[in-house]
Design a protein around this nucleic acid. Structure first.
Length: 556
RNA sequence: GACCCCAUCGUCUAGCCAGGUCCAGGACACCAGGUUUUCAUCCUGGUAACACGGGUUCAAAUCCCGUUGGGGUCGCCA
């Protein structure tokens, strides 16, 4: 007598715990689940594993949903969000499925396949420590199983905290995995693990097994860290008479240095920056923030997201991106992130590297998933993003940049008239690798004229202004009255006027004039194309800044 | 420590399962030269790997064994 078989339709699920944002590793798992389901005309299910009361929060799961949607990974069943979610196998939050778990839990206890245990956390810790000291493997000693039934009943009645443990059968367990192949776990390798916590919630292992069965999940794609857990899930399935889904464990994703990618990396980067630049450089606001000293000293402390963002801005460093949301903020395109993520641990074979989601759906196969972990290379991602940005039409880029600013840099939309905003976006298109990387260097467009700082000791500024036989400063002086007379202030007119000046007085060498102009309007030698830059800035500011610049370099 | 998994350029990887076409191909990064009004690009060229040791075979990156190295798991986290 074999267990009932699965329906002929493929059903995959992504089952994150809603702590924090969607990690890139999780995003890749979701992407593969989604792609595999689509390849087989099946369904992709999203389930929120919020059985840890200490960690779960509703806001976090909403962040997840938005990140997934942004990536273009739509779920057919699960929490309802925009046009996604719904389905007949809900609820899709585990915290709302307690009755279901309890039913199966009771069943196992009644059948003698699971039992109550009253060991306290402290007792267990002590036993583990002792085993460790003697270099022994710790395994639960089945203290709970030895208890007489009347004893158990009375202690339960008295309200003593208790967990339920699964009584592990004494047989080897063979894990079959589409990617890793077969592995045999000898009996005695596992112990009687907890399936219901003292707070009444099921543990992950139990909830997963019950939900995957009830939600008719046919294929489980998850990270390799779950490989050994599979043995636990299998014995539970057998005890409950459940069907066995197909398993496929995906290789892990690490930092370039081999460490685990974690939110802590942001704090790490910030601490390093603070140490390098000195704490005195921090804005007063930050220095007085309570706890900043402790944060600097304590590696395990993490800053609130907004604080970290502010500090990064203050220090002029960019935070390492860890979560999908970080990459969105940094101006990566969702299809590029998907492409890059798909390439971590999988590839279509041959030399093909750039592809879209449809291609992934068509070509994805377990056979081509690698077994060894991969390191996340931001430089390569950036290069992919650069290529994708350059492949965009300027109109498309302008639209995307506007949407990006609308979300993360509204000040540009507020301070620039629409036509100038669009011109700025268009002028930045060719020099952009992300939607965000020119934002910082474009600040001078929206800053007041007297906020521009001139540094006569800066090497390249100095060379542009004072170097050579016909110093830039002299050009600025002669150009100033010409620009003051200039009536039409647009790219074409400025090009005509300045171009003529360059022909007459700079031997046709535009750099001779463009560079000092850049210094004047930005304080640096870096800006978009010069005519666009002056046009966006406007006549008043341009003239003002040239005057201030002339003064600053006069004294040098 | 025990158990499980893995091993090609700095990184992601192709090639391996069906041994010869591989003194190992691509991409990113890096280096050199060139183009460019700045920055960013762009073009050309280059450096760079089969972890080690044994087998099997006419022939091994490809198959087998061992060593070393890496990763995962060993929670009332998921």
């Amino acid at each position: 007598m074999s267990a009932p078989s699965h329906p002929p339709i493929v059903r995959t699920r992504f089952a994150p715990s809603p702590s924090g944002h969607l990690h890139v590793g999780g995003a890749r798992t979701a992407l593969f689940c989604w792609a595999f389901a689509h390849q087989n005309h099946g369904r992709f299910i999203l389930r929120i594993e919020d059985t840890d009361q200490k960690r779960s929060s509703d806001a976090a799961s909403v962040g997840f949903l938005r990140d997934l949607k942004w990536l273009g990974i739509n779920w057919d069943e699960g929490p309802e969000f925009e046009d996604c979610g719904g389905g007949d196998y809900g609820p899709y939050f585990q915290s709302q499925r307690l009755e279901t778990y309890t039913k199966y839990l009771d069943q196992l206890v009644a059948e003698g396949k699971a039992y109550y245990a009253f060991d306290t956390a402290a007792e267990l810790d002590a036993k583990r420590a002792e085993a460790r000291k003697e270099n022994q493997n710790y395994r639960y000693d089945r203290a709970g199983l030895m208890l007489p039934p009347e004893d158990v009943e009375s202690r339960l009645k008295a309200g003593e905290p208790a967990v339920i443990r699964f009584k592990l059968p004494e047989q080897p367990i063979v894990i079959r995995d589409e990617i890793l192949g077969e592995a045999t776990i000898a009996p005695g390798q596992l112990d009687d693990f907890v399936i219901r916590k003292a707070d009444g919630y099921p543990t992950y292992h139990f909830a997963v097994v019950v939900d995957d069965e009830l939600m008719q999940v046919t294929h489980v794609l998850r990270a390799q860290e779950h490989f050994m857990n599979t043995a636990r899930h299998m014995v539970l399935q057998d005890a409950l008479g459940f069907r066995r889904p197909v398993y496929a464990h995906l290789p892990l994703i690490f930092n370039p240095d081999g460490s685990k990618m974690s939110k802590r990396d942001k704090d790490k980067a910030l601490r390093a920056a603070v140490r390098e630049k000195g704490i005195d450089d921090l804005s007063a606001e930050f220095r007085t923030t309570a706890g900043i000293d402790e944060w600097l000293r304590d590696k395990d402390r993490q800053l609130e997201f907004d604080s970290a963002l502010m500090l990064a801005d203050d220090l002029n460093v960019s935070l390492p991106e860890i979560n999908v949301d970080d990459f969105r903020r940094s101006g990566y395109l969702p299809e590029v992130l998907c492409n890059y993520l798909a390439l971590l641990g999988w590839n279509p074979g041959g030399d093909v590297e750039k592809f879209d989601r449809d291609f992934l759906i068509e070509k994805f196969s377990f056979e081509r998933v690698l077994k060894s972990p991969a390191k996340f290379d931001r430089a390569k991602l950036l290069s992919f993003n650069h290529d994708a940005i350059q492949a965009l039409s300027t109109e498309q880029f302008v639209d995307l940049f506007r949407a990006h600013c609308n979300e993360f840099h509204t000040e540009f939309l507020e301070k620039l008239p629409p036509e100038h905003f669009d011109l700025l976006a268009a002028a930045n298109h060719k020099r952009s690798k992300t939607l965000d990387d020119q934002v910082r260097s474009s600040r001078f467009f929206i800053e007041p004229d007297d906020a521009i700082e001139y540094d006569p000791t800066d090497k390249s500024a100095r060379r542009a202004m004072l170097g050579g036989e016909s110093p830039g400063r002299a050009h600025l002086e002669s150009l100033l009255p010409i620009l003051e007379e200039q009536e039409d202030w647009d790219v074409v007119s400025l090009e005509r006027t300045i171009g003529a000046y360059v022909q007459q007085h700079a031997g046709g060498n535009l750099g001779k004039v463009a560079q000092p102009l850049r210094v004047a309007v930005t304080g640096t030698t870096i800006s978009p194309a010069i005519y666009e830059t002056l046009t966006i800035l406007g006549k008043v500011s341009t003239v003002n800044r040239i005057r201030r610049c002339l003064d600053a370099f006069a004294m040098a």
